[in-house]
Design a protein around this nucleic acid. Structure first.
Lengths: 376, 376
DNA sequence: CTGAAAGCGCTAACAG
DNA sequence: CTGTTAGCGCTTTCAG
């Protein structure tokens, strides 16, 4: 039913190759004929079949984006940024959710492999070796973790965790808990390392609680441990956990930030909507999405053009690909307060339900280096 | 670099068609040969190229899902449900976000058309006529609106709005505002009609405010109008707007639910996390995603198999496709209270910051008909 | 500048 | 059960 290149050729009285050129190399065809062809195509509602084209050019103009969990509000900004960046370069993004299931992830990569020119992989669970293996099947850019030899874009959560701890130290906290993320997560490891170092340097005691499921429920589940842990402040693996923790603490009769200060990581939109508004480390997720697309496409065109070297050493070529790390910012809101605030005296009047102006940090973003890039 | 069917044929000493059969019709090939072929394929890391296969079978085993805004928490559950349902039937879902831009939507449909077997369209903005036109290019299932002659899955927001208004009437509210959604939205129209009728029947006055942008910001923007409107209760087009409104009201010194009751629609996860917890109309988004996939695939296989009738009347065939409407439920939480509650006396102690047990509605879901189906 | 021919990776009758 | 022969819709040499 849909018109093919042949229908257009017949209608406009030219050979199919002329029609083909009209669309893929317009400058190679006489303006007059081109006009005629275009008119016929328009009339017949013809549109080149990208899949057929891909079969021969080897370029689908699609890119795959594999996400552990779309419902995690951390991802949508990344997805949207990737999409708009891709669209600008005339690419489409196919997003696939895996429900945090590494098996599904692997299958998805295989299924996608032939339908896309490359895959952006946002997958905390998969093993490094599996990722490397998959990268031989389709060009990969890894997001949120580092894999030797592959292009990666990460956020400097280490720096973020350090800032968070220092902020807490500055408020007088000396007994701090860290809610770690899923086992095997690169991000969680980085946070732990940096937070540990910062705490040590400040003479504070850091208790690691976890691993935990990186959701609100996961955060709520450790509220009891936090209480027993006798700490005055907590740094959570992400905002969702931080928010869940605040809820859980609340149910236990502990108030944030009066009884315990809580810091999240990510700065998802939700963090501005909860009470108290969450102090958190903002990660530049949109920039990450854009950057990942750029890296994939660059890597891709390079691979397609630089045919001078011929075969051999393709693996070695990959080893030179860049690893980008984006800066993070601490944004101070209402979930942190001085450690000495044993009773709720930080806030004017009756805490959350005070109708007056919110105690939202004015400047908000001490470091303004968001989106800064460190290449290796 | 990736192995092709020919490589496998050569390696296993059979013709390529035998290899083909090994994968697409295993029962037609001698177990012994099949084993050999499979072994070689495994060794070479061969995987059938789905795009090439699609070119000839006409079945890509992909389905497209076009979403106005992935960042709207209403959609992720729908997306995930659609994906898992599709996966069960050996289909993949390609999700595309359009930033609420109808132009992008149309282009996306065109681009997707040849790479998928059908498209699920979740697109409040597009005109009916454009949708009909697109449906001639690729099988479409429309979500969240009704288009004559096309398969649609909607949620009974009319019923939901009615329950919400009746709940409000029961609490004694007589001056109610309705925050409408985007202009031209089917959902918004349904809500308005049903809410209007219910209010009239209950002898209440319903003021319509809008159209509005269906986001938190959109909701916050009308807080001032709501205050001036001198109403005691508000029904919002969706939860995001309801939450934004609550924030905005708060900034104006009005408390929810003491000064004004607010009801949302959707029951996104966030509604359980805000203070006060939002009373809202739960829409079965996951069921909608599943259903849409089922309808598309059924419609699809029917079209592929039922070749008995031959040509002719394809349009008429489509006219018989089902329109499914899923039931909604009112879930009562903390953002609604009796109209007479001029001062905060509904809740025990000091409102939101009371650390005690939350006043969350016990049973919660009066109607238990979620997922109920009404076919036409 | 345009046509002819070859073929991307695969499936689908049709013989054998 | 397996090989042969076409050909999906398109691009790309290569001649003219």
């Amino acid at each position: 039913m849909p018109a093919t290149i042949r229908d257009v050729a017949r209608a406009s009285g030219v050979h199919i190759s002329t029609v083909s050129r009209t669309f893929s190399a317009p400058h190679l065809v006489n303006p007059e004929t081109r006009g005629r062809v275009l008119a016929c195509a328009e009339e017949l509602g013809y549109r080149p079949n990208r899949a057929a084209r891909a079969l021969i050019t080897g370029r689908t103009h699609n890119i795959g984006l594999i996400i552990a969990d779309i419902a995690n509000p951390f991802f949508p900004p990344l997805i949207k940024a990737a999409e708009s960046q891709a669209r600008q370069r005339d690419y489409h993004v196919f997003v696939a959710d895996t429900n945090e299931d590494p098996i599904a992830e692997e299958e998805l990569v295989h299924a996608l492999a032939k339908q896309v020119d490359g895959v952006l992989l946002c997958s905390p669970r998969m093993s490094n070796s599996l990722i490397e293996q998959l990268s031989r099947e389709v060009p990969l850019v890894v997001i949120n973790r580092q894999v030797a030899g592959l292009p990666c874009v990460t956020m400097d959560v280490g720096q973020g965790a350090r800032s968070a701890i220092e902020h807490l130290l500055g408020l007088g906290h000396r007994k701090i808990a860290l809610l770690s993320g899923p086992r095997g997560s690169w991000t969680s490891r980085e946070i732990r390392r940096a937070a540990g170092a910062a705490a040590r340097a400040g003479g504070a005691e850091l208790t690691v609680l976890g691993p935990n499921h990186p959701t609100g429920t996961g955060g709520g589940a450790v509220a009891e441990q936090v209480r027993r842990g006798d700490v005055t402040a907590v740094l959570a693996y992400n905002d969702l956990m931080a928010i869940g923790l605040i809820e859980g603490l609340d149910a236990l009769g502990l108030r944030v930030p009066q009884d315990v200060s809580v810091v999240g990581i990510d700065d998802i939109a939700l963090s501005r909507l909860t009470r108290p508004k969450l102090t958190t480390v903002a990660t530049p997720t949109a920039a990450a999405g854009r950057t990942a697309v750029d890296m994939l496409l660059q890597h891709d065109t390079v691979a397609a053009r630089g045919s001078r070297g011929g075969r051999g050493g393709t693996v070695d070529d990959r080893r030179t690909t860049a690893q980008v790390m984006l800066q993070t910012d601490l944004v101070i809101r209402d979930s942190t307060a001085p450690a000495s605030a044993a009773a709720g005296r930080t806030r004017p009047g009756g805490a959350e339900d005070a109708p007056g102006p919110h105690r939202l940090a004015g400047p908000g973003r001490p470091t303004v280096t968001t989106g800064g890039v460190v290449a290796s």
